[in-house]
Design a protein around this nucleic acid. Sequence first.
DNA 1: ACCTGTTTAAAACATACGTTTAGAATAGGG
DNA 2: CCCTATTCTAAACGTATGTTTTAAACAGGT
Lengths: 212, 212
Amino acid sequence: MKPKKNTGQNARDRILDVSEELFANGSFASVSVRAVTSKAAVNLSAVNYYFGSKQGLFQAVYVRRATLMNHERLRLLHEADEAAQAQGRDVTLRDLISAMLTPPIYWLCDEDKGFSVYIRFLARSYLEEASDMDNVLRQEVDVFARFVPYFQNIKPELSEEDVYWRIHFIMGVMHHTINHLHRISLLSHKACKKEPWETTRDRLVAFCCEGF
Amino acid sequence: MKPKKNTGQNARDRILDVSEELFANGSFASVSVRAVTSKAAVNLSAVNYYFGSKQGLFQAVYVRRATLMNHERLRLLHEADEAAQAQGRDVTLRDLISAMLTPPIYWLCDEDKGFSVYIRFLARSYLEEASDMDNVLRQEVDVFARFVPYFQNIKPELSEEDVYWRIHFIMGVMHHTINHLHRISLLSHKACKKEPWETTRDRLVAFCCEGF
DNA sequence: ACCTGTTTAAAACATACGTTTAGAATAGGG
DNA sequence: CCCTATTCTAAACGTATGTTTTAAACAGGT
């Protein structure tokens, strides 16, 4: 009768949290429903009860926080846009790329919240053949489409195709960093140390700005 | 008694070819031994006979062509180095990055050979938790280590850490392109068309050169 | 032909999987 | 308190999994 019991950590949320983490570290097929339910300390059938199927659970994990990050990106874009207009200048390339990369990188390195896990989950999802991953991507695609006119305004000589290719490359740098930040030390023959997230973000933004 | 029967397509090779393709399109856990053997038209137990286990098969797929690509990279590096020395100049940034990216991108877009499949397999392997993937990566890491002095020679102001971060970013752009080339159209709102591999390579190299 | 090592075949094994079912426990409103 | 909808539990179902076993087929050398 009542719409929802939203008191702290009910079974549903616990399942989402746990499966978010497991899906972030392993592929869809490699994570079993039993692993999720046992780690979440709920009954095996809870997944099917709340989400219908394992696939339904996966999509629920995605949906839960997807819009937040993209809204944050658009918020940063508008913020930069208004600041630029106030000063009677154009938005800078750095503003745009920073607006795209700051939310995920900030969340990735923010160890307190569960967002860090979600970012890794998201990056991995890109490789998941889970049938409707194309639909899942569409939201992010639409957000980036909003950035395109700004890019073209700054670099009018670029075709739309050029812009999209460069955005594609930026996503590549971002995803790779998300997926392999934990072994950057190995990949660099121990040359790279742990550093604050702003430093990592700045490296990323600098590389992408120049590349663009 | 005889060392090996290398006549064309024996069962072992057929298994390797098929599983290479399946592992390129799906995660380790999502590809079943039965799917491999049935598609390869061999008996179910052939995988365990030849490779000991499913894991053994996966590593065998990796090992089969891993050294080739890295040798090709080093070959291009030496080629550029000698050409530069002959003209009494330094190797260019473009030479270095092109040497890293040309082999995988060329193979990726070469539809005749099975290498295209392998490149996608490789890119996906990076996300596989298959226990010793860190060892698997080491070979590629070692190859890139050979590039580092050249980069530092061109840009002496960069620390070793800086160089490795930039190489890391280049890998990101490359892997992302490999993994998502098939849906670049979707990601770009249909703005990006199919194009010859050299064009794609040049986009990549240009982006990475500027970013570096 | 015989022997020897290699390869293929069919069947079975034990376990893990996602999902379903039927019923008990729980909670809140009347 | 009773009623109803929701949540949770335990057990089972059918199937798919990786691997093992046993033996047959095959090949090449002597």
